[in-house]
Amino acid sequence: MKENGGTREGMTGRPARNSPPGMTELLLVRHGESQGNVAATTAHQSGAHAINVPARDADVELSGAGREQSLALGRLLAGFPADRRAAVWSSPYLRARQTVELAIHTGGGQTQPLLDERLRDRELGILDMLTSAGVEARLPQEAERRRWLGKFYYRPPGGESWADVVLRLRTLLADLDRLHPGQRVLLVCHDAVILLFRYILEGLTERELLDIAASSAILNASVSRFVRPGGTGPWQLESFNMADHLMSEGVPVTEHAGDTNVHPR
C-alpha cells in the first residue's frame, strides 16, 4: 500500500523559515508483533473484558512472529547504502527495543539505538488492560465520555489523549532536526505514534487523522517513509505502512488494529 502525502501551512513539524536544515528522511517503523498484540486481539474476538498480559505494558515481549518480522526488517536495513545508514531511535518499551536490537544485529550494523521515552506508546491510565467491551461494562461513564470527545481529545483518568502525545512528539522532532541535520533517521515505535507523526508532518486536521485511523491498521514491522530534500520545507509522505520486506520472505504479516470507533459522536 502506497500513499502520497499532502502538506499544509502551519505546525507541521518542519523548521521555521530561515532555520538551519534538519533531517532529510524519516523512517517510521512499528515494532514487531508482541505478546500483548496477540492477547488483545484474542480478548476482543472472544468478548472478554480484560486482556491477559503477564507484564506491564512497558515490559511486554515480542511474539515468535514478531521476532521473525524484526529479522526481516534487519535484512531490509542491511540493503541501505553504507553512506545512507540511518541514525536509529527507539521507544524504551521492550517490544520496540527487541525489534530494533534484532534488526540491527541481523543487518550487521554497529549502530546503538538511542532510547527516548517520548516515543513510548500512549498511556491508557484507568483503561489499561481493558477491552472495549470491558470499558463499556466496568466504566460506562468513561465509555460515554470517550464516544463524546472522540479518540483525539479523550484523556482517560491517569492516561493521555492523542493530543497529549502530539505535544511530546513535536519536541522530539525539534531535537532530531538539531541532532541529525542532513541525515536519515529511523524511529521504532508504536501504531498510534506513527499515526500522530502523520498528523504533525502532513498538517492533517483531526477529521483527516481519525479517518485514517478508522480505515488503516498499522502493520507490525511495517515501514512508513517521509522525505524532505535539503532538510527544509514541507515533508512528503513517500510510502505508508509498507510490509513488502515481510511478504517477499514469507514472514507473517500481522494486523492488530485498535478501536476503530474513533470519531466524536
Rank of each mutant, 00 (worst) to 15 (best):
E68Y: 14
P234G: 14
V135G: 09
P15E: 14
E123L: 05
Y93M: 05
T106P: 00
E142C: 10
A192D: 11
E238L: 06
F152E: 00
V262R: 01
S224H: 03
H263A: 10
L130H: 08
A103W: 00
D116A: 07
S19F: 07
L102D: 00
L62I: 14
Q35Y: 05
R265I: 12
R17Y: 14
D175F: 15
G125L: 14
E202T: 15
G159P: 04
G66A: 12
V253G: 04
R168F: 08
R84S: 14
R146V: 01
R85V: 07
L172P: 00
G13S: 10
E160A: 04
D211S: 06
T41K: 01
T24A: 04
A217E: 10
S34K: 08
L114Q: 06
V60K: 03
T171S: 11
S248W: 13
Q110L: 12
L139F: 13
A257T: 13
R95K: 04
L94K: 01
Q236V: 12
G231D: 03
L246R: 10
V38C: 02
L246W: 12
D191Q: 14
A143C: 15
E9Q: 04
V251A: 09
P15W: 13
L176G: 06
M242P: 05
M1F: 07
A43W: 06
L102W: 01
H31I: 04
T7L: 06
L26K: 03
T131L: 10
E33V: 05
E202A: 11
Q110F: 13
R56Y: 11
R8L: 10
L71I: 12
L219Q: 02
